[in-house]
Design a protein around this nucleic acid. Sequence first.
DNA 1: ATGCTCCTGCGAA
DNA 2: CTAACGTTCGCAGGAGCAT
Length: 441
Amino acid sequence: MGCSDLHGKDVRLVTTAMPLALVDCNNFYVSCERMFNPKLEDKPVVVLSNNDGVAVSRSNEVKALGLKMGEPWFKMEKLAKQHGIIALSSNYSLYGDLSARVMSILSDFSPKQEIYSIDECFLDLDGFEPQSLMAYGQRIRQTVKQNVGIPVCVGIADTKTLAKLANHCAKKGLAGENGVCDFGRMDEQERNALFASIPVGEVWGVGRRITEKLLTINIQTVEDLRRADQEYIRQQFSIVLERTVQELNGIPCIELEEAGTPRQQIMVSRSFGSTVTEFDDLAESVSYFATKAAEKLRDDGSVAASVCVFIRTNPFKEDEPQYQRSMIVPLGQPSDDTMALVSAVLKGLKKIYRSGYCYKKSGVLLMGLQSKATLQATLFDDVAKQEKTANMMSVIDTINRKMGQGSMTIAASGISHRWAMRRDRMSQNYTTDWNDLPVAR
DNA sequence: ATGCTCCTGCGAA
DNA sequence: CTAACGTTCGCAGGAGCAT
């Protein structure tokens, strides 16, 4: 029952409820930090992105002060001082660890789970008793809170887009109760009135640009978009937004995707803590990124057909000369070998590097990914050599997992790290590094 | 016309 | 003290090219 059926002849409006839940952690990174530092409770706390660049997670107290998501730290620093806002560098190993625990617990609540991002997942509730879904949502909240300590909200509805919206309502207390909102429990009029009170930009898939364009044709609220003409939306916007409209009307167009489909590309890039001008420093950074990308690639059991390397200056420094360039370097044959990836990346860098610029960012993109297993089935030359490098790579990966990331690196990724990030406000690695355990000595 | 690759824009977290 | 603006992923659609 996808929306393609609508274009076919057999248009049946089957309205059998196929409920699903969206479970989303509240202010996830801030909640993680609070778990290990209770002093942060009830205080305004913000977690910053890499390089302490912009706000990526805000406590309710910070949101109340009107501080926006994505706001650069240096712009809000003054306000932060006034109100005693505590700013922390992001600590991804901590968040990843807690995320895994939350997801594991949530997986017990449904036979089908889609982990959508680090802090949210969809749960298929097909066949569950509709009357008891609110109570089920409450049980989900309590269980996660008790077992991990992270607060979550639950949105329940018949499509992913509606479940996202229901979750939004639960979080804001616009509908439902106590952090759980089930659109299936509301009558139509009540829901339409609710939708008419929510700005269209809150809808999943409607970002800044599309909101602007929708406003020009007087579509301002979720209800306006729900009632919009499909053909017109398709024509003026895209098939994506048309699907969104369908989903707002309770017609599922976006399938639940359980884990298993490997990524199609792998990106590793960073802004530098300071600007970089020398080729050698850029070379060191992209070699390091290629090494990291290769580890991810092997974790996925994939090989890459080509690599893309890019470098760029700081676009925010408008008075400085700007330069940005990328190059795609095909590998002789698809590979997951760190050496092969690093040498391809360096080959590309030599072509695109120009002296005389202040570089701010570089990155590596692995493209044309495919399963290593299917590749090997079609490749039978030089098997011995392939296996030898594969073994060496797996030894390196194991050592890095055991001893901490970066224990073993290849020479080109260097040791100077003059390009490294700033992380002045880093919390400690409570869950992942023995040295950071807060024990008395 | 049709099918491919490459590139850009957009959205999300 | 100053200067300081994230990262990674997928999808759609258009451009450019070949057939």
